[in-house]
Design a protein around this nucleic acid. Structure first.
Lengths: 121, 121
DNA sequence: CATGTATTCAACCAATCGGTTGACAACAAC
DNA sequence: GTTGTTGTCAACCGATTGGTTGAATACATG
């Protein structure tokens, strides 16, 4: 899992219009023109947004005459979810560990004495 | 779940330095100075990065004399994970549905005839 | 109180971003 | 082959971003 890939993914989803495009592509594939329709901006602008999503690997485009129907690549989201989950869990575990230590300090004083080496203030 | 909150979260994590800070804060809380140490940039720059993470709700800072120890807010990551998961699942389901339809088209021709209205090329 | 330490604020700068418009490429259809 | 449709490329513009340096703030300590 490339770091710059991760950067491109997060950056791609940091824009409301692009998140909205992702939302709509989750429902069904769509051409650039179809995607551009509801927004108050030029097709070129939307085309750029799609390019950003494509460079991030979140969207692919196939050819259909002049059309370029866009498709959401669901698997790639897994990578991002995994990245987030790693640190969420790590931080969560640490938090729970701290809770346990605090509980120990309140209740099981005798169990704690072995661990309380350098932390006395 | 605020849309601009989501924007700030994704934007915050779209920077490698900030992702690294998150990684390190998942292990343990740290002051601004401690966090700044390994990077080849000024403390002010790192202070700004932390502000971005704080504005996104990913990090909180408590007061300890001059120090401002930073703490990772694990729960907030859940919101982002949920956002991602929603569309990942939706797109995945659609993909599987498509697979089923294709299987139907190969095998159960008679069931398909009702659906093949306008798609003939 | 004066000094040193930890952090933030403010102004600045180059690079990137999100939008614009105009030109161009690829294809369908008449 | 000309016309209309769909989409991308290129140049441009103002706003934002990620960094810098210098000054200011807040606190601990001699």
């Amino acid at each position: 899992m490339d770091d710059s890939q991760l950067t491109r993914m997060f950056a791609a989803l940091a824009d409301p219009t692009r998140r909205d495009i992702v939302t709509r592509l989750a429902v069904s594939d769509a051409t650039v023109g179809e995607l551009a329709d509801p927004y108050g901006m030029s097709i070129q602008a939307v085309s750029k947004h799609i390019k950003v999503l494509a460079d991030a690997g979140l969207v692919t485009q196939r050819k259909d005459a002049q059309r370029r129907p866009c498709h959401l690549e669901a698997e790639v989201f897994d990578l991002m979810t995994k990245w987030i989950e790693r640190y969420r869990q790590q931080a969560q575990e640490r938090y729970e560990r701290l809770d346990a230590v605090l509980a120990e300090m309140r209740g099981d004083k005798h169990l704690n004495q072995q661990r309380q080496q350098g932390a006395a203030s």
